[in-house]
């Protein structure tokens, strides 16, 4: 069935089976392969994208449910010129190794820091407990997210 929504600021329209997940739609129909699929049962968080600003697991959402929504993927949080402050912080702290879970951490951390730029380490750990990383042991990821908070704080006019 036909579905229209917005991905990374651009309108898209796809014709999909109802059973197609948003994750597979993004990856295989829209060729946005930065969103990774690690479990397909809503545990690992690698497929996290933003839907209308909320971090959600795109393997636990049907593409047809995205009708009319604004979806942002890791590609939408990146640019060609330079790494974003969050990405720079991940690189500085070596908060990634194989990189497979990384897009899910970037989208989740971005949602968290956008809403709660003052979050503390416990809150970061609580929120990131929905994303599994097998390489880093998380210490560097938490450091990277905490270190990136300043970039999300609203500058006072």
């Amino acid at each position: 069935m036909p579905v229209k929504f917005e991905v990374n600021g651009k309108p898209v329209s796809v014709d999909v089976e109802p059973r197609l997940t948003l994750a597979d739609c993004l990856r295989h129909h829209l060729r946005l392969t930065g969103t990774h699929v690690g479990c397909e049962h809503g545990v690992c968080g690698a497929c996290t994208v933003l839907v209308d600003g909320d971090a959600v697991r795109s393997c636990l959402m049907l593409a047809v449910q995205a009708e009319g929504a604004k979806v942002v993927t890791v590609e939408g949080l990146s640019n060609d010129d330079d790494l974003t402050p969050l990405q720079k912080s991940f690189r500085k702290h070596h908060a990634l190794q194989c990189g497979f879970c990384t897009p899910g951490f970037i989208t989740t951390a971005h949602a968290l820091l956008t809403e709660e730029p003052d979050c503390d380490a416990d809150r970061v750990r609580e929120v990131l407990s929905g994303n599994i990383c097998r390489c880093t042991g998380y210490i560097a990821i938490v450091e990277a997210v905490l270190d990136a908070r300043s970039a999300y704080k609203k500058t006072t006019p």
Partner: peptide, 9 residues
């Protein structure tokens, strides 16, 4: 209940 992303849906 569950985790951040699940709690959003």
């Amino acid at each position: 209940v569950a985790h951040y992303q699940i709690r959003n849906r």
